[in-house]
Simulated assay, not measured.
Amino acid sequence: MVMTTRPKVASKAFDAFVAVVLATACVRSSAQTVKVPVDPGVRGGAAGAGTPLQGLTADENAFFRDGLARFADIEVVTGGNNNGLGPRFNSNQCLSCHSQPAAGGSSPARNPLIGIATLNGAKNVVPWFITQNGPIREARFKRNPNGTNDGGVHNLFVITGRSDAAGCNIAQPNFLPAGNPLSAQGGNPNIIFRIPTPVFGAGLIEAISDSSILLNMKADASLKAGLGISGHPNAHLSGNANRSANDGTITRFGWKAQNKSLLMFAAEAYNVEMGITNQLFPQERDETPGCLFNATPDDTLNFTTTSTPTSNPNTAVLSDIEAFADFMRMLAPPTPAPGTPSTVNGRTIFAKIGCVHCHTPSFTTGKIASGSSTNPSAALSNQTVNL
């Protein structure tokens, strides 16, 4: 998600908070019964997520449904309808990692990677930090064997042994020594973990203008300075301010907010998480001879093979990465739980003591094209984005 600033809050902010708490305590009558806060736990009822944005046109809704269907497609190495898996991969389906509490979410209650490890005859050993009831984890190595910085994803599985990858013989990374399987603590100190991030409302995040982010950062400058709050657009892997190396604009998606758009985000994930090359990442991450079975990129535009009186024979059908981006772009944010006296009071105090100067409550999207640059999308344009 987007982090507009990286704040450094001085002790003044903490002092202000303490003062409010003490003042509240002083006016409390000794005869009053002190209510102890109770954690309500996970809310019940419907998921409140996974639906399309309100106000989509019929065309937008059709593209959303197409993207959702492809989000659930299972990938294979070769010989199927969705080819290109591997040679190294973390899973074989977008939905397997993004399904809780609905499509577009995070790890499901039961970890599907246990079965995927040996699917179709694969010889993978399930890594120690992947458990039946634990979260899906992506593994990155901090350093290379020679001590230089790494930071890249090291895929959990390989296609060796699969019936659709005859002749491939590559090994999984070494994730040992093992630690606590559930917490993933205490094991190989060279590994850092990430869990799948939900993408609910991602299209609204994409639709926030750079100028809005920068103006918000500069707003109430003197007040923020007095509280010791400062920062810049969230830094990414290179350590630079979060600017695209291509056009200098603010990026916002990915584990370090390094990707500019949902299309780039989808393309990187398809290549890194499933090993499927595409038009933005056209080379395999592992080009070991004997493990390459398809022409690359695996995912590309799909040209129609026949024409009709009303169509052009070269009309292109969207690639998977474009369909994934459409699904995420038009996926609604989660519906908040109904307010209670406690949450309303907490929100008021949150604003009163200055928390909102670091934690921006909301933004408004710009004028966003979807299908036509002359007819902005009503579902994406001038919408409030609650953060």
Rank of each mutant, 00 (worst) to 15 (best):
residue 159 I to F: 09
residue 168 C to R: 15
residue 187 G to W: 04
residue 179 G to Q: 06
residue 165 A to L: 04
residue 166 A to W: 00
residue 173 P to T: 12
residue 174 N to A: 13
residue 187 G to F: 00
residue 184 A to N: 01
residue 170 I to P: 04
residue 161 G to W: 02
residue 163 S to M: 09
residue 188 N to P: 03
residue 171 A to Y: 07
residue 180 N to L: 05
residue 167 G to S: 14
residue 176 L to G: 14
residue 163 S to Q: 15
residue 188 N to E: 02
residue 166 A to K: 14
residue 168 C to M: 02
residue 170 I to F: 10
residue 185 Q to V: 06
residue 188 N to K: 02
residue 183 S to D: 07
residue 178 A to S: 10
residue 158 V to K: 10
residue 167 G to T: 00
residue 184 A to F: 01
residue 181 P to Q: 05
residue 173 P to K: 00
residue 162 R to E: 11
residue 159 I to D: 01
residue 159 I to N: 03
residue 187 G to P: 02
residue 180 N to Y: 04
residue 157 F to T: 03
residue 158 V to C: 09
residue 163 S to V: 04
residue 181 P to F: 11
residue 175 F to D: 02
residue 179 G to S: 10
residue 191 I to Y: 02
residue 167 G to M: 15
residue 185 Q to H: 02
residue 189 P to S: 14
residue 172 Q to R: 03
residue 185 Q to G: 06
residue 186 G to W: 10
residue 183 S to Y: 05
residue 172 Q to T: 00
residue 185 Q to A: 13
residue 157 F to L: 11
residue 158 V to F: 04
residue 166 A to D: 14
residue 163 S to A: 15
residue 187 G to Q: 07
residue 169 N to S: 15
residue 183 S to H: 01
residue 162 R to P: 12
residue 164 D to A: 00
residue 168 C to K: 13
residue 168 C to A: 14
residue 162 R to K: 09
residue 175 F to C: 13
residue 179 G to T: 10
residue 171 A to E: 14
residue 166 A to T: 01
residue 160 T to H: 06
residue 185 Q to T: 09
residue 172 Q to G: 08
residue 182 L to C: 01
residue 174 N to L: 10
residue 160 T to L: 00
residue 189 P to T: 03
residue 159 I to M: 07
residue 158 V to S: 04
residue 165 A to H: 01
residue 175 F to W: 09
residue 169 N to R: 09
residue 173 P to E: 15
residue 168 C to F: 07
residue 162 R to M: 14
residue 175 F to L: 11
residue 175 F to R: 04
residue 158 V to D: 01
residue 189 P to Q: 14
residue 163 S to L: 11
residue 161 G to L: 10
residue 167 G to Q: 14
residue 159 I to L: 11
residue 157 F to A: 05
residue 177 P to M: 13
residue 180 N to Q: 04
residue 167 G to F: 08
residue 190 N to F: 09
